[in-house]
Design a protein around this nucleic acid. Structure first.
Lengths: 137, 137
DNA sequence: CTAACTGCAAAGTTTTTGCAATTGC
DNA sequence: GCAATTGCAAAAACTTTGCAGTTAG
């Protein structure tokens, strides 16, 4: 959590696989989903290894940890700046196109004293599917 | 999580206290911090009650649940639209002034089909304190 | 009165960690 | 060879829930 102690990272087929899984989906899955996918290719992989590699990949900057609304960690393999929309009903998270001008961090750095690395813009609302379902009732 | 089943809410000194605690801080605390504050006034309050009331207050729309980067739920007693900045080193979350023009949701609703209720803009970076600490080393 | 709420404790869920064996460099 | 990684299982961390008693309306 604090000053990232440096450690050389080794490759492993588990780590490769986890990164590959994350990069091949547009979902923003949690550790357990990744674990289930990974077991299809490496049936003996353990959940502990998935967590350790997700943590390692996030510290290496190869993936991004994000937070769902419900207290689980989610992971995102797409490092490009992009924005999210989350359904307040079914909790799904989707990428959205980058419709806004890029922000300049400067005014926020001046106002807060933080050195800003990145930003995230999230929208919340009802997805079409949930809207349809609740209209049926 | 889904169709909020309606239930009349009763007042209780525990619920009042929890709301009061959340509204009197600019922090975005987790359940345990709230529990500790609450015990100073109601020493017998239980953590389960804190969770139940946080859930209830969030469903009532009086507070907002948010997500920290590290898989904990955080709670925010300030319902006005405002943006956050989170330190990537010590994980603290702070409010930031509203420096940007309000977004129109329209283009996003058209692009996604979602009916958007709210948005959140978050910045990530190093807080002044952590920057100072890591400079010392 | 009675449905909602409480404290407590047990259970559930998600994440982390210790350990001995294995692997990458 | 040695440090990083692995699978396994136990532990820790966080949240929810069942229950019997209490309280608000």
């Amino acid at each position: 959590m604090l000053p990232v102690e440096e450690k050389r990272n080794k490759n492993s087929k588990q780590k490769d696989l986890i990164l590959r899984i994350l990069r091949s989906t547009r979902r923003h899955p949690n550790a357990n989903w990744i674990y289930e996918q990974a077991r299809r290719e490496l049936p003996n992989i353990s959940l502990g290894t998935v967590y350790r590699n997700l943590d390692c990949l996030a510290r290496m900057g190869k993936i991004r940890e994000m937070a769902s609304g419900n207290g689980l960690k989610l992971y995102d393999g797409d490092l490009r700046n992009h924005d999210h929309i989350q359904c307040t009903s079914c909790s799904r998270v989707e990428d959205i196109p980058h419709l806004f001008h890029p922000f300049s961090f400067d005014p926020i750095e001046s106002a807060t004293g933080y050195q800003i690395i990145s930003r995230r813009l999230e929208f919340y609302g009802t997805c079409p599917e949930c809207a349809r379902k609740s209209a049926e009732v």
